[in-house]
Simulated scan of single mutants.
Amino acid sequence: CPVRLRSVCLLAGPSSQLPLQHLLDSYRCGREDDHLSYGETGMPVPPFGCAFSAAPNLEHVLAVANEEGFVRLYDTEAQTTSKLIFKEWQAHSNAVFDLAWVPGEHRIVTASGDQTAKVWDVRAGELLGICKGHQCSLKSVAFSRFEKAVFCTGGRDGNIMVWDTRCNKKDGFYRQVNQISGAHNVVDKQTPSKPKKKRQNLRGLAPLVDFQQSVTVVLLQDEHTIISAGAVDGVIKVWDLRKNYATYRQDPVPFRSLCYPGTSTRKL
Results as ranks from 00 to 15, higher is better:
residue 228 S to V: 08
residue 12 A to V: 03
residue 96 V to C: 12
residue 109 V to G: 05
residue 30 G to N: 05
residue 245 Y to H: 05
residue 254 P to M: 02
residue 159 N to K: 03
residue 181 S to R: 07
residue 84 L to N: 07
residue 76 T to S: 12
residue 162 V to K: 11
residue 30 G to K: 05
residue 58 L to E: 15
residue 172 G to K: 04
residue 188 D to T: 01
residue 210 D to R: 13
residue 256 R to A: 15
residue 233 D to R: 02
residue 204 G to H: 10
residue 154 G to R: 00
residue 134 H to E: 14
residue 118 K to M: 13
residue 80 T to A: 11
residue 46 P to K: 00
residue 196 K to N: 15
residue 103 P to G: 09
residue 42 G to M: 07
residue 183 A to M: 05
residue 250 Q to L: 01
residue 47 P to C: 08
residue 128 L to N: 06
residue 249 R to K: 14
residue 176 Q to P: 07
residue 168 N to S: 14
residue 265 T to W: 00
residue 268 L to R: 14
residue 239 W to L: 09
residue 262 G to W: 10
residue 50 C to V: 07
residue 264 S to L: 04
residue 157 D to W: 10
residue 56 P to Q: 00
residue 17 Q to Y: 04
residue 5 L to D: 05
residue 155 G to R: 03
residue 86 F to C: 06
residue 247 T to N: 08
residue 59 E to Q: 15
residue 84 L to C: 14
residue 40 E to Y: 01
residue 232 V to R: 10
residue 265 T to F: 06
residue 133 G to K: 02
residue 235 V to E: 10
residue 150 V to L: 11
residue 128 L to W: 07
residue 16 S to Q: 09
residue 89 W to D: 12
residue 169 K to S: 01
residue 124 A to I: 00
residue 48 F to S: 06
residue 53 S to I: 11
residue 82 S to G: 11
residue 184 H to W: 05
residue 25 D to R: 07
residue 260 Y to C: 12
residue 186 V to L: 08
residue 118 K to E: 09
residue 72 R to V: 13
residue 194 K to A: 15
residue 104 G to R: 05
residue 96 V to A: 03
residue 100 A to F: 13
residue 141 V to I: 12
residue 165 T to H: 03
residue 230 G to E: 02
residue 231 A to I: 03
residue 229 A to M: 07
residue 250 Q to N: 11
residue 113 G to W: 03
residue 219 L to W: 08
residue 76 T to N: 09
residue 7 S to C: 06
residue 78 A to F: 06
residue 259 C to P: 12
residue 142 A to I: 00
residue 92 H to T: 04
residue 74 Y to C: 07
residue 182 G to M: 07
residue 228 S to M: 06
residue 260 Y to W: 11
residue 60 H to R: 01
residue 141 V to W: 07
residue 11 L to I: 01
residue 231 A to Q: 13
residue 239 W to Y: 08
residue 107 R to W: 11
residue 56 P to K: 01
residue 104 G to W: 10
residue 45 V to H: 04
residue 105 E to H: 12
residue 73 L to M: 11
residue 159 N to A: 15
residue 158 G to E: 00
residue 47 P to V: 01
residue 45 V to T: 12
residue 133 G to F: 05
residue 15 S to N: 12
residue 44 P to Q: 03
residue 150 V to A: 10
residue 31 R to F: 11
residue 7 S to V: 06
residue 70 F to R: 09
residue 192 P to A: 04
residue 22 H to P: 00
residue 267 K to F: 15
residue 44 P to S: 01
residue 82 S to F: 07
residue 120 W to D: 09
residue 247 T to R: 10
residue 13 G to L: 02
residue 242 R to H: 08
residue 19 P to S: 03
residue 173 F to H: 13
residue 255 F to Q: 13
